[in-house]
Simulated assay, not measured.
Amino acid sequence: MSDDTNGRIALVTGANKGIGFEIAAQLEERGLTVLVGVRDAGRREEAVARLKDAHGVPLDVTDQESVDAAAALVAERFGRLDVLVNNAGISGPGTPPSACGTGELREVFDTNVLGVLRVTNAMLPLLRRSPAARIVNVSSGVGSLAHHTDPEHYMSALPAGAAYPASKTALNMLTVQYAKELRPEGILVNAAIPGACATDFTAHLGFDIPRTAAQGAAIAVRLATLPGDGGSGGAYDDDGPVPW
């Protein structure tokens, strides 16, 4: 992808607040037309109003009919899609594996993994119309098996949780598989690791986090605007590749 991003179309899911909104804002600053994919109409309209060149797209990533309707809307209004940022995600209650019910696991996976699959597959025909499409899945360092099994890494001492970490590990593998499939078509697929940021998503942790949502969004924006020789099938934070 060239440095000139003017005229490109980007869809960001879960873009009404936090890191998702900052991704949308930073892509807009780079000249992209941003589509704000949000389930709640009021929050969607509020986010669009805060941006300059944005359009709201009703989108519930857990509902196939909603996803299909969103793809039809993008096709009708814009004809193609250049960038897809799968940002929508939920954390769940953080129950340890021994106490986690299948319903809790299913709910988190439905958004964090199946939601990415639904949206990506629905948007692929539009992405294939782009000369240089990019897909960015917003993952987490919590999904890194290497982090959790390294005694020197702080994540190895975190309390055990079943749903969210497993969902992000699964998302990482899904990212790799999409990258393998789509690389011959020139579509680059990567996972962005924003790091812990001070958002509603982390408010329950009970301690101050100095990193802002805007800082966390930067890596997703970089991956969304990679040049043609950029990497595919990796997970990256601000410092570079993150081990699986």
Rank of each mutant, 00 (worst) to 15 (best):
S2D: 15
S2K: 09
T5K: 14
V12L: 07
V12A: 06
A15K: 08
G18D: 07
F21C: 11
I23Y: 02
A25Q: 15
L27Q: 06
E28Y: 03
E29V: 11
E29D: 15
R39D: 07
R44D: 05
E45P: 01
D53E: 14
G56F: 08
P58L: 11
L59P: 13
D63Y: 00
A70F: 02
A71V: 04
A72H: 08
A75Y: 00
E76P: 02
F78C: 13
G79R: 04
L81F: 01
D82P: 04
D82A: 10
V83F: 03
V85S: 09
A88K: 04
P93W: 00
P93L: 05
T95V: 15
C100R: 05
G101R: 04
E104N: 10
E104C: 11
L105W: 12
L105V: 12
F109M: 15
T111K: 01
T111M: 06
V113D: 04
V113Y: 01
L114M: 13
R118H: 15
V119D: 08
V119R: 00
V119E: 05
T120I: 07
M123K: 04
L124A: 10
L124Q: 08
L124G: 12
P125Q: 04
R128F: 08
R129W: 01
R134Q: 13
S140I: 13
S140Y: 09
A146T: 14
H147W: 10
H148C: 01
H148P: 00
T149M: 11
T149Q: 10
E152A: 15
Y154D: 12
Y154E: 13
A157Y: 09
L158P: 00
A160H: 08
A162C: 15
A163L: 11
P165F: 07
A166T: 14
K168R: 09
A170T: 02
N172P: 00
N172L: 08
A179R: 02
A179S: 10
K180G: 01
E181S: 14
L182D: 06
L182R: 00
R183F: 09
N190S: 12
N190K: 03
G195Y: 02
D200K: 03
D200P: 00
F201M: 15
D208C: 03
P210S: 14
A214L: 04
Q215G: 05
A217M: 07
I219L: 06
A220R: 06
R222G: 03
G231V: 13
S232L: 09
G234H: 05
G240Y: 03
V242W: 02
